[in-house]
């Protein structure tokens, strides 16, 4: 079971969180003309990366904040975690 450093609450076990997918996906702006392909990429297409992956988790059984977690998908190592509004410098 992963041990995740919630930036609001501290180290907590994985079973307090729910997974939210790729954190690098940006929702297209509202009311913007957008091509089928672009929308398709946003809704459906995700990379299945091996290695460092920036992903979203929600601390549902804690502070209910969505957070960003930088995790290695192969080794499960967690490098850094960020608040929802924190910029992630690579």
């Amino acid at each position: 079971m992963l041990y995740i450093n919630c930036p609001h609450c501290g180290m907590r076990s994985q079973n307090e969180f729910s997974y939210g997918g790729d954190a690098s996906i940006k929702r297209p702006e509202l009311n913007k003309e957008i091509s089928d392909n672009e929308w398709n990429d946003f809704v459906y297409n995700r990379k299945s990366l091996r290695g460092k992956h920036l992903e979203l988790w929600q601390h549902i059984s804690g502070c209910r904040q969505w957070i960003k977690v930088e995790r290695d998908t192969a080794t499960h190592e967690i490098f850094r975690t960020f608040k929802a509004d924190e910029e992630v410098a690579s």
């Binding site: 979203l56 929600q58 969505w66 929802a84 509004d85």
Partner: peptide
């Protein structure tokens, strides 16, 4: 609730 929190915290903060 999670859905609303997602949009408020991440998409339209």
């Amino acid at each position: 609730l999670s859905h609303l929190e997602y949009y408020l915290q991440l998409v339209w903060p």
